[in-house]
Simulated scan of single mutants.
Amino acid sequence: MYILIDGENIDATLGVNILKRPPRGEERPRWDRVLEFRPFPSRTGNNHATGDGEDHPAKGLFFLNVSQRSANAFIQALLAIGWQPIQLTSPDAERKVVDEGIQRTLEAILKERPGADVVLGTHDVDYLPQIEALLDAGHRVSIMCFREFLALPLAELEDKGLVIHDLELDVQAFNLPLNRTHPVDIDEFDPYPYL
């Protein structure tokens, strides 16, 4: 399984849309939890390692644009918990290097890793063609996001098998609750926090 994170997109969505300011360290996702999260049931029917290579650790690829700033402390923290930071640069400030890097990686997985599970942390529609191609080829694909901010064309891929996981509610990647409103299934509704 490959987990690809669009670091800029997740951070911007958290800051601009949810917090309405730059997130503080304690308000950011716990990336170790994201790396450990299993978005799909085991193909073998259990959640334990089988020794056949089926249930092996996820390969986490965290994409960053480091063209105009240094993120050395964050990069070292990612390495320490098992992520592979992908630090991309370009002299062209308008170039979307993270999007290009993720698109190329998704295309490489499609070509070279048939059947690999793919998890993408983003809200961005720029990956739509690659995600559709992976789904059409039989890959299990999941998006990790804040569901209410996911681009509609991506959300519509649920009919084709895309699995959507909310970073806060499903992955439980945060230590502090975020100030969000979202639909709640009546069977899961707890009125007590509202009293």
Rank of each mutant, 00 (worst) to 15 (best):
Y2A: 11
I3F: 13
L4D: 03
L4F: 04
D6G: 06
G7C: 03
N9Q: 01
L14F: 03
G15V: 12
G15M: 12
I18M: 15
L19D: 01
L19I: 02
L19V: 03
K20M: 07
P22R: 07
P22H: 13
R24W: 12
G25W: 04
P29I: 04
P29E: 02
P29V: 02
R30Y: 12
D32V: 13
V34K: 12
L35G: 11
R38A: 14
P39W: 01
F40A: 07
P41M: 11
G45E: 09
N46C: 15
N46P: 04
N47A: 13
A49C: 10
G51C: 14
D52M: 15
G53I: 09
D55L: 09
L61E: 05
F62M: 07
F62W: 09
F63Y: 11
L64K: 05
N65F: 00
Q68W: 14
S70Y: 05
A71K: 15
A73K: 11
I75L: 11
I75P: 04
Q76L: 09
Q76K: 05
A77E: 05
G82V: 03
G82D: 02
W83V: 00
T89N: 02
A93W: 04
K96P: 09
V98T: 07
E100K: 08
E112G: 15
R113T: 12
G115A: 12
D117Y: 14
V118C: 00
L120R: 06
D124P: 01
V125R: 05
Y127F: 08
Y127S: 01
Y127V: 03
L128M: 13
Q130I: 09
I131P: 01
L135H: 04
H139Y: 04
R140W: 08
V141Q: 07
C145T: 10
A151S: 06
L152Y: 11
L152R: 15
E156G: 04
E158I: 09
D159P: 11
V163C: 03
V163F: 07
D166G: 00
E168Y: 01
L169W: 03
Q172A: 07
L178A: 06
L178T: 04
L178N: 00
R180S: 07
R180Q: 08
T181E: 10
H182G: 08
P183N: 12
I186A: 14
D187F: 13
F189Q: 01
L195K: 08
